[in-house]
């Protein structure tokens, strides 16, 4: 039998733990006399999560698993974390800075993370696309993108 990755075991156990947590939380939800009530469906899901987690764990243990490898490409991990971090930062900043100021920074940042080193081109494209999208949405589709407190 082909050995399974270590991650399969971790995910299997995580599903069992998640199932137990959902079961405990579901038990505190309101009970009703007729029907399933708010806790009924989550209880069913919790059982499903535990069952699937158990099958995943047992099948991984039976097949054997490869030793956990911590050899992930550091550069790739860093690029992923920076991309997520930049996106999260954008969500936090956009209510203050507004769409027109925050978006070009997000787009330039992402272009650089993707490896583009033509900074002037990045700046021109990001500003042009941001302004075009802003104009299209606010003027044509009447969807108001965040104006931000700075520009008010």
């Amino acid at each position: 039998m082909k050995k399974k990755p270590f991650s399969d075991l971790v995910i299997g156990i995580a599903f069992i733990v998640l199932g137990v947590c959902v079961l405990i939380l579901s038990s505190s939800l309101n009970k009703v006399k007729l029907g399933i009530g708010p806790g009924g469906f989550p209880t069913f899901i919790s059982v499903l999560l535990m069952l699937l987690g158990t099958v995943q764990t047992v099948s991984t243990l039976r097949a054997g698993f490869k030793a956990p490898a911590f050899t992930a490409d550091r550069r790739q991990t860093l690029l992923f974390l920076c991309a997520v971090g930049l996106s999260v930062l954008y969500v936090l900043v956009v209510p203050v800075a507004g769409f027109l100021l925050a978006t070009p920074v997000l787009v330039i940042g992402m272009m650089m993370l993707y490896g583009n080193r033509k900074y002037l081109l990045c700046a021109v494209i990001s500003i042009a696309v941001t302004v075009a999208v802003w104009a299209l949405f606010t003027k044509v589709f009447m969807i108001f993108l965040p104006a931000g407190r700075l520009l008010r």
Partner: peptide, 23 residues
């Protein structure tokens, strides 16, 4: 991809925001 993907990210952000005008 270094031009296409950041633009897609921006359009996704606009798309998600426009669902209810909420970040």
């Amino acid at each position: 991809t270094d031009i296409l993907m950041p633009i897609i990210l921006m359009l996704c952000v606009v798309g998600a925001y426009s669902l209810a005008n909420q970040t």
